[in-house]
């Protein structure tokens, strides 16, 4: 009874708060990968609405910890939480923006985009089974390209990261030995190669070591003009990483197949689909203690869905397809309720 009346009182205060026209500050924490675009959206959003976003890019698991501890209004994570975890913690999860991971290399005489690899070859390189660039299997997919004899040096991210998670998820999907060996996750046990810290560490090593191959976020590779490889997708076509192929991967996916849209966009079918594409996710409480704050956060996300596509493309992120955005909005409007059962998000 006491609880009920408390809840009622809380609902009242909430109602009175949300009508107040003061500038809100939304707080969020988590993934480092989407930080640049969230920061850019926040800047534009502040100009537009005077409301500001304080986002701390402390890493995905840090973001999950913070939202569990309820110290922030939303958490952000690259690797989606599973259905039972969402259920247990009472979170609503949805994708916000997408990005791709690309294989970058340093092979003399092979300019960017000229190297063609299959997922299988990529996995075997990182597993130490293919050790030379002139390996027969690599030569077969690269007819007309002269590949040197040099020993391949794989370069990986030494710090736990969503990029590694996406990349190893893909390798696990396309290679059975990889799946039963190193597996998929934010850090795995790499059988060979060298580790660099962050995108910049990987990029530096790939640039410095002749015959090296590594993986970084697409935006990082593009902005720093590091040569990247074409990959063969599930439909058997070789594709180059670009906004078009990332969107193709998203378009072909069945977003509703996992709770909280927690699908992996790696290895999607579609002639144009880039095989290592990944969405990054937002977590908000289903029954927030501070509904007015969550409402502000959702307003920001809604605004970003509406106005943020161009900004995302400028920073080499990929906006979600329109129908996915609509589905996410519908989720907000049906699943997030305050303690009195009132919907937090209104369309």
């Amino acid at each position: 009874m006491k609880l009920l009346s408390f809840a009622f009182a809380a609902g009242l205060t909430v109602a009175s708060f949300s009508t107040a026209a003061t500038a809100a500050e939304i707080t969020g924490a988590g993934a480092t990968f989407p930080f640049p675009i969230y920061a850019k959206w926040a800047e534009a959003y502040k100009k537009d609405t005077n409301n500001s976003l304080n986002y701390q890019s402390i890493g995905s698991s840090g973001g999950i910890r913070q939202i569990r501890a309820k110290t922030v209004d939303f958490g952000a994570t690259d690797a989606p939480l599973k259905g039972e975890e969402l259920e247990k913690d009472g979170f609503v999860q949805f994708p916000m923006v997408m990005g791709g991971v690309v294989a970058v290399y340093n092979v003399q005489g092979v300019p960017s985009g000229k190297l063609k690899l299959t997922g299988d070859i990529l996995a075997d390189i990182f597993n130490g089974k293919i050790t030379k660039w002139n390996d027969a299997r690599i030569a077969k997919t690269n007819e007309g390209v002269t590949l040197p004899e040099g020993t391949i040096t794989p370069v990986y991210r030494s710090d736990g990261s969503g990029t590694t998670s996406v990349f190893t998820t893909y390798l696990s999907q396309v290679s059975e030995p990889w799946k039963s060996g190193p597996g998929a996750g934010a850090s795995v046990q790499w059988p060979i190669g060298q580790g660099g810290k962050g995108n910049e560490g990987v990029a530096a090593l790939v640039k410095q070591v002749p015959n090296a191959i590594g993986y970084v976020e697409y935006a990082y590779a593009k902005q720093n003009s590091i040569p990247f490889a074409q990959l063969q997708n599930k439909s058997g076509k070789f594709v180059a990483p670009e906004a078009k192929t990332f969107q193709a991967a998203a378009a072909g996916a069945d977003w509703k197949s996992a709770p909280g849209y927690g699908i992996s966009l790696t290895n999607q079918t579609g002639d144009e689909a880039w095989p290592i594409t990944a969405p990054t996710f937002i977590l908000v409480p289903k029954n927030p203690e501070k509904p007015e704050q969550v409402a502000e956060a959702l307003k920001f996300f809604d605004w970003s869905f509406k106005n943020g596509d161009q900004m995302a493309l400028e920073l080499d992120y990929v906006p979600l397809p329109a129908q996915v955005k609509d589905a996410v909005r519908a989720t907000w409007a049906s699943d997030i309720k305050d303690k009195s059962g009132q919907l937090v998000f209104k369309k």
Binding site: I58, S61, G62, D159, G160, S187, G195, K197
Partner: peptide, 12 residues
């Protein structure tokens, strides 16, 4: 120290 620095952020 490097192992801790690398993995602490994403460790659970």
């Amino acid at each position: 120290a490097s192992r801790i620095a690398n993995e602490f952020n994403e460790a659970l």
